[in-house]
Design a protein around this nucleic acid. Sequence first.
DNA 1: CTTTATTGCACAATCGATGGTGCAATAAAT
DNA 2: ATTTATTGCACCATCGATTGTGCAATAAAG
Lengths: 352, 352
Amino acid sequence: MKNDSKKKATIYDLSVISGISPSTVSAVLNGTWRKRRIKESTADLIRDLAEKHQYTTNRQAQGLRSSRSGLVGLMLPVYDNRYFSSMAQTFEAHVRRHGQCPIVVSSSRDPQEERETAESLISYSIDALFVCGATDPDGVHAVCEKAGLKHINIDLPGSRTHSVISDNYTGGRILTEAIIRQFSAGDPLQPEELLLFGGRNDHASRERIRGFRDVKQEMMGADIDASIQPTGYSPNTARIAFESFYEKAGRLPRALFINSSINFEGLLRFMSAHPHENFADLVVGCYDYDPFASFLPFPVLMMRQDVEGMIAKAFELIEELPGPPQIHLIRPDLVLPRTALPGPLDSLKDID
Amino acid sequence: MKNDSKKKATIYDLSVISGISPSTVSAVLNGTWRKRRIKESTADLIRDLAEKHQYTTNRQAQGLRSSRSGLVGLMLPVYDNRYFSSMAQTFEAHVRRHGQCPIVVSSSRDPQEERETAESLISYSIDALFVCGATDPDGVHAVCEKAGLKHINIDLPGSRTHSVISDNYTGGRILTEAIIRQFSAGDPLQPEELLLFGGRNDHASRERIRGFRDVKQEMMGADIDASIQPTGYSPNTARIAFESFYEKAGRLPRALFINSSINFEGLLRFMSAHPHENFADLVVGCYDYDPFASFLPFPVLMMRQDVEGMIAKAFELIEELPGPPQIHLIRPDLVLPRTALPGPLDSLKDID
DNA sequence: CTTTATTGCACAATCGATGGTGCAATAAAT
DNA sequence: ATTTATTGCACCATCGATTGTGCAATAAAG
């Protein structure tokens, strides 16, 4: 219970107190002591001492010497939506389960910031980096490569290392089909009544759009060129797109395929400026799942990306990096309107 | 452009190449060179060299020597809701602005995990810790104190160091009043028709409940004991509470004060099992803001906690720790139904 | 043309943990 | 009773950056 107030105990302190050499103390405390043929009794002695003095190893020193830090990084575009925040939550659980420390940062979808963020994490000697939703995964790859850092892409694929992503084409198809089926045979949806909003020129958007178009062709026999309204990933550009459509057409389309929950927030902004009636017979499909969105006053179909599956697969792959880069597709699930799915929070014990 | 592949350049490498001593190189690269009276020209030379060899300082070594890491920690209960994820987003922006590296971890509202998480962060020599929504802030305080680590409480107050929290009493009052005012004078809300669900026995819940009760007394002249249904912070316990109320009463209360968006998800789960009609004339007030929740098919009033304000205040206070612990209240804002507020995402530039 | 000040930098110890190597003391083999 | 093996641990260099100190070389003062 010695509380040498302020300063943390080091192996040297324990060494002096016990008369045992620092290297032996170190070996005992980091578990390599059997290999070094340390007596069981000495080990016990040191462990007791460590306990008593509340020793914890200085990870900076350890990391400096061993060039491994125990830190595992996750680079996210942003935190503030349900998809990425549950990504963070799931990631953290995995990393902690491996006895390491998660370090989550966001890089705002800016290629340069992505590279700088990676550099910055590398300067802490992180052991691995999960690159999620990067705008320029290959740029980040170059940085990691040079530093000899294990890394993997999630959500958006790169061409230089393994990627684990949502099966966007299939997801896009499923969602589009589900939207169309929301309409009765008596008054079926017409090609020009179903528009896709959001996204940009990235792999995910392109694949979703391809699925969207293919299904429209197959089910409706046609598509129109103007049915794609890429607005980037921001609420406001999406809002503006909705507004300008509304200006021209005098109403919203009967059905919307919205490319992400972030863009969906653009629709919310539009809604706040227009009365309920405009949304009475609207059907929305959104490529992302948000529990609250699922209960909006009009039917909302959502694609829930399998975050748990993606993270798990990524952890599996990151250990076996050799071989040509592959893209692993993880199938997302369609979530019907008015559905509240359990999430990472449900596994927490709740203390009252 | 020398790419000595694999290994990162160190000050020793630059020293050898330039014939200048490591200490001088170090001084130049960390900015203390003027103090050391290094010639401007030598400094330039070294900086060029550093640039050319893509030198970045090894933060582990730097941290070991200086016992400061440049890491600033944020401990969250969970990531996965809009309140905490925007906390993370805002926190990160502040930390990066100070040239440091954010490290965000969650500790599941478990006092022991909170302490262990703190210990773990301390072993990385983090420079400061923001303790957000901790179940046992004073337990975490003890750990930080012993390690001489600057820290501050957010969201839930502790008694041993400064705290920055939402003005829960006022917020509770405002929200309760707004809920009551949603009902017309012709058919006013009765005390037994307004119930509070969610929360537990923590400071925030207690204060909100106090505000809730006070306003009910003042505006309705009465309250009933059974009007408080604490369910902890989990969707499922909240769902069960709604179900069991519904079983007994045959319907939901006309108006609900829900203690957090997490508990609100419990209502969603309840809703998914019951037809629309049950919610036709429901009014909900929720102490948290979520843009999608604001557009549900019944009026939803939300209290938006001023995350930006809280984080900013916390950063201000953490620098001047001496003095008796104080609690700083940050006023939350009432958000009317069908409101989509801008968030941290809006400040990102969007590249198309 | 000395003496003193100033400039510019090199040296070396240090932060805490790790792991290769070497060397006693004890045990086993001859 | 030697020789050989094995056990148990101490020594020391090392990871990369920081910082107090010292000492030349140059400039300023006398």
